[in-house]
Design a protein around this nucleic acid. Sequence first.
RNA 1: CGGGAUAUAGCCUAGUGGCUAAGGCGCCUGCUUUGGGAGCAGGAAAUCGCAGGUUCGAGUCCUGCUAUCCCGACCA
Length: 574
Amino acid sequence: MRISQLFYQTLKEVPREAQIPSHQLMFRAGMIQQLASGIYNYLPLAQKSLQKIEKIIREELEKKGCQEVLLPTVQPAELWEKSGRWGYYGPELLRLKDRKNGDFCLGPTHEEVITDMVSKVLKSYKQLPWNLFQIQGKFRDEVRPRFGLMRGREFIMKDGYSFDVDEEASKKNYWKMYEAYTAIFKRCGLSFRAVDAATGNIGGDMSHEFQVLAKSGEDLILSCDSCDYAANAEKAVTPREASPAITEGLKKAEDVHTPACKTIEEIAAFLKRPEEDFIKSIIYMIDEEPVLVLIRGDLDINESKLQTLCGANGVFLADDAVVLEVSGAGTGFAGPTGLKKKVKIIADYSVTGRANMVSGANKDDYHKVNVNYGRDFEADILGDLSFAHAGQGCPKCEGKLEEYRGIEVGQVFYLGTKYSVPMECNYLDKDGKSHPAVMGCYGIGVGRTMASAIEQHHDDDGMIWPAAIAPFEAVVLPLQMNKEEVVEAGEKIYADLKAAGVDIALDDREERAGFKFKDADLIGYPLQIVIGARSLEAGEVELKIRKTGEKKNIPLKDVNSFVSEYLTAEKSVE
RNA sequence: CGGGAUAUAGCCUAGUGGCUAAGGCGCCUGCUUUGGGAGCAGGAAAUCGCAGGUUCGAGUCCUGCUAUCCCGACCA
């Protein structure tokens, strides 16, 4: 590619909107343009890098026997009603109507469409397994799009879905995808960790996230300092269990007047007791049923764990009317004893094993002291509902957890039959008996992968692309465009490298040397091949390695072999 | 969805209620220069986010709206 013809621009100044390095640099290098909040145009430099990432994805998935399909962006509501997600997916699902007033949505993910598609073909166990994927634009109407390509509303995603006869076969597929993802992100030159993850809206009971380690990451991940345990903070297990009920030293429960004390902090100060002595009681709507959730006062309820613990589709805070109906009081005074309306109680382990605690009295301006688990109340479900944190013990060994920021670039889920049952995606076994297919699903944020590569590899001058996903592998910089021999040498090296299969750019613009250097550093070509009048006289060119800043003079005849060898070494995984 | 902020040329910014809205980057023309975003001269480019209002007079003050960004909540 001749840079004089490339559709792009570079900027010295950063637009005010761009806040993190990948966004600023991609904008400055003319890779992306914002069209609306969370919606971007991808210019040629970005598209080239995206295509390289996509190619790596395709190669690694095809190695594992996956087949590529392409599914529509616009999907009929009917399918989502069938899976049950039309009702609870929420406003993130962009819904629209066609001219006949029919309901549609823009696909945020494709479980419904693919399961429906497969159900029309699947008949016999002999056809399975299948593992299908696509690379396609997704739309999620995020509440708060952020950080350029990191959290867009429209974004490019590779999504894949596996179909198997049973759990064992499906989990085998799951681990194959785990391997493929590991290979993909390694080839993209990323430093990452696979961590245990929550399953959220997609569902299923086993999941790993592939997290790129970066300061600007939105996710908090916890990882053991001595074993291989690593998990998203919302998923990480808290090493705590139910304690046996305490039977001695229990005092009589009684109501105390606690005017205007709604938060644990206020009431703890008012009663002069530590927050650990309190039982935080919050009423949630879990799949449209009010539920009282309890946790020790110094901890917070982890809604992700709550959803998983009750196997629910959705977990939301109850509104004031429901709180009044259930507890008979305004918010801030609910507690497990003396509820106005009997509801299910779900409690964290932390409310057991502690005597004479304090909770709301289900009466405005009153709390109840000396409340004891086992004597005054019991939970219908008892489990781990708290957030894990750095410094706590590892749930698997004697080590301690450390925290990192991460960018989630991929996630794999074992889904089971969550979609195949409602979507009637069934096959007949060899006895002629019908079974739902067992599914897994696997996503990679392609644009996010590109952005996180920049987050991990950049300096004050610009991007430093891993060779495998760089928009161009190298650039030829003829410095004196008024000197014929310089221009000619540039043209020749450019042509030779191109013929050798190097993805090469030639900066043939009538610009000064400094200008070209600055642009080249910003765009982050892994190699710069500098052709200057002086070194050319000695029959040499100067090679700059962007990653290290190292410069070498190389005889003209060795340029091809040096560049090819360097790039091959850089792109190899080990 | 709660809190905060911003909106002036393609980008970054200045602009005390008062004359023709200013500068830098970028762009165009010419000359000069050619190893780290050169210099000089000239030029094009603005419905000051939109709609109302106050005022003799509004980029500037007020109200409403819209868009964008940040923090939080939320989030395969």
